[in-house]
């Protein structure tokens, strides 16, 4: 027989990859899953939407932004649970008293011991604590260290280093075609004229994609003075930066 390997309920990996595109959770307790990422399971597992009835307290403990809790389910029970996302590469990451910020669309699942918070960068969430989480990427994740400038679309996330800042390549913008595009928008935005710049110590996670995975809503921010993106004054300020506005449009 030259067929693929056959797994049963016992031989499926425990909290490890089945292959590059699927992850097997050895469930004994609770995991949080993004909706639509479970492909199959063995055992006695129940799935519930988050934030109702007896599970309401989970929102307070693990989800610190109530608005996006609707996109998650909690899996409870015992068994082997297979996770996958549109045949994208899937990897698990362990955090040990750490924090990692990740594009919300890339995060598939995480252990209950981690808590999820909204990042100050729009479209990203931060996981804090100790535990395991599973994330998807277009192509294998490649780890690099700062200093580095990254096309926003190729960014999966970052750990331990300070949040990035925007970098504009003025040579590219000022060049004939770049200038034309900056003025007219013809040709679309590309990473060559605007990047996220990382400095300091830490790790940056890259994926090979110029077309990002669909964003998952991460919830809004409270309106108020001094909260980026929150108050009306703040959003006006952001809109003034052409590149950032374009980026937000693309990722939103």
């Amino acid at each position: 027989m030259n067929g693929p390997v056959v797994f049963d309920a016992h031989t499926l990996p425990a909290n490890d990859n089945v292959h590059a595109y699927a992850f097997s959770v050895d469930l004994d307790g609770q995991w949080f899953l993004q909706k639509g990422k479970m492909i199959a399971y063995f055992g006695d597992i129940r799935f519930d939407g988050i934030g109702h009835g007896p599970l309401d307290h989970l929102v307070a403990r693990s989800f610190h932004s109530p608005l996006h809790a609707a996109d998650w389910v909690v899996a409870q029970g015992r068994g082997k649970l297979l996770l996958a996302d549109r045949a994208f590469d899937v990897n698990s990451f362990d955090l040990d008293q750490g924090n990692l910020t990740i594009r919300s669309g890339n995060l598939l699942a995480f252990e209950e011991s981690l808590s999820l918070k909204q990042s100050i960068i729009p479209g990203f969430v931060t996981l804090i604590g100790t535990g395991k989480f599973v994330a998807a990427s277009n192509g294998e994740v490649h780890f690099v260290e700062p200093p580095i400038r990254v096309d926003p679309q190729a960014l999966v996330g970052w750990a331990d280093c300070p949040s990035p800042c925007h970098h504009y390549d003025h040579g590219y913008l000022r060049g004939f075609l770049g200038g034309l595009r900056a003025m007219t928008g013809v040709g679309g935005a590309s990473g060559e004229e605007h990047q996220f710049e990382f400095t300091g110590a830490g790790t940056v996670l890259l994926q090979s994609s110029e077309t990002v995975m669909p964003e998952q809503p991460v919830g809004g921010t409270p309106a108020g003075g001094g909260t980026p993106g929150g108050g009306p004054g703040a959003s006006g300020g952001l809109g003034g930066l052409g590149g950032l506005a374009r980026w937000a449009e693309r990722s939103g």
Binding site: G3, P4, V5, V6, F7, D8, A9, L12, V18, H19, A20, Y21, A22, A40, Y41, F42, G43, L82, A84, R86, A87
Partner: peptide, 14 residues
Amino acid sequence: GPAIVLRVTPQTPL
């Protein structure tokens, strides 16, 4: 994505 083959037994429904 590459297929995954899962064995079902009377004790372990899928």
